[in-house]
Write a protein that binds this DNA or RNA. Structure first.
Lengths: 253, 253
DNA sequence: CGTGTATTTGAATGCCCTCAAGGGAGGTGG
DNA sequence: CCACCTCCCTTGAGGGCATTCAAATACACG
């Protein structure tokens, strides 16, 4: 068994005011006060290796995180080891909110690539709610956005065929990635294995492989370097009958 | 085609202070100030018939609701009519938050039985966030709780067998119902058809029927009067390998 | 090179689907 | 009071999608 990746605090290199994510057009602009609070709310940064477990089911994590860079995924396990991937996490997403609000995590989060995260202290969450109702509203909004994505994923796993599901998933991830500037003008490269796809779609690896092959044959995606290159998001969207992400601006903590 | 049920505003019969739900041990106590605000935040009540659509995908609902009585479910449709039920709503649950925060609903909600709902004005949500950080926190908590339930449902649909799925679902609903006093000391009666179960589990009605029959043969549930009577929650939990709901107190708006 | 991980393919099985039809319960109207 | 309708549950048959088992190939890394 290979050594699983770890994670280490790396102090504070990115200031909130000059955060590269915050410049992107998907994120709503914060006013100076809000930005000052967030900047002060931030406790430091965490660098995680690929494969590192950032949060784990059953633990009482003391922190909230916002992803600055890299890819990860949220998942749950059944006792016999069956795994369900619930969603993917990308730059700008927040993780650990469940633990922050309710004390105990009910899912785990693992890094798919090296990641950089902003750490926030959960003890100071109430302070945020008291002093910055706009930010409090944003956090609810973020939780609600996650719920939306889950609704969509559940619809897909429950009611779409294997081919539709795979097309939806890859279109969904690629769309989200584009919004936060991953892939630039070129195609999006998603650092996942077919096992990840299988565990997201509720399928076996073998059948996932055969399904993905169909997508490859249709030149919608490529599979290489241990990852997926999405060639034709719109083709995937059409195949899955999925209308895409909404265009609303979102907050970034 | 039968006439679908409707819904009508019925003024205001239940005062928040004497709300029967609020007396239950699952809900955390509110202080006087909070209660006064909620009471004032409440705009009226809505009575809905069985089958009524309370919220619908794509609409811009102006209201948030808390369920006072009755059963309902949240769902999404694919364009060709395939339906996925995302979760059930019971007394004490809040619906319409997505619409309240983001403007547009991405799922629909339908009544499974006659329902009574508290109506809140979404325009005043920001007022709540500004003046009552504790309540704002509660709303985030509620959103996060919904996310938890969805995670669990997704795990089930993605990774459990048909029999496990059915057992989990019925145990889950019955457990939630008991917490809000439905069924009293006796067994819980869930007003759903096998079609609802099928659309929740991602199965066909035919196979759902055969699966439920196994649960009936094992004397875990009964099916009658167009609904399900849960006889043995613990038996279902054991079959599904599900550890049950957590015991944390929750807020009630 | 050897080892480990990921992808690919084939074969056999089986879970679950669709199609089809029948039956029971409750409501409505003649 | 019975005929009829509708909704829901039930059952059987046959087929297909997806699974498991098994093994081969490819690739990266030390």
């Amino acid at each position: 068994m290979a050594v699983r990746g770890g994670s280490t605090e790396v102090g504070r290199k990115v200031s909130c005011e000059s955060c590269p994510l915050r410049q992107m057009p998907t994120f709503r602009a914060f006013d100076k006060e809000e930005l000052a609070f967030v900047s002060n709310f931030k406790r430091g940064e965490l660098a995680a290796d690929k494969g590192a477990t950032l949060l784990s089911e059953g633990s009482n994590s003391a922190h909230l995180f916002t992803i600055l860079a890299g890819w990860g995924f949220r998942y749950k396990l059944l006792e016999d080891g069956r795994r369900q991937i619930l969603n993917y996490v990308l730059p700008g997403d927040m993780i650990g909110l469940q633990g922050g609000l309710m004390g105990e995590m009910q899912h785990s989060v693992e890094a798919l690539s090296p990641m950089l995260l902003c750490m926030f202290e959960r003890d100071r969450l109430m302070e945020l709610y008291r002093g910055y109702p706009g930010l409090a509203y944003d956090i609810t909004w973020i939780a609600s956005r996650e719920e939306r994505m889950l609704d969509e994923n559940l619809l897909s796993v429950g009611r779409r065929s294997a081919l539709e599901r795979a097309a939806y998933l890859l279109a969904f991830i690629a769309s989200r990635a584009r919004k936060v500037g991953m892939g630039g003008k070129g195609d999006v490269d998603i650092p996942i294995t077919q096992q990840h796809v299988a565990d997201t779609l509720g399928l076996s690896v073998v059948h996932t492989n055969k399904t993905i092959r169909k997508l490859i044959d249709r030149k919608l995606v490529q599979w290489r370097d241990g990852g997926c290159k999405v060639l034709d998001i719109e083709g995937l969207m059409a195949l899955a009958n999925w209308s895409g992400l909404d265009e609303t601006l979102r907050p970034l903590l």
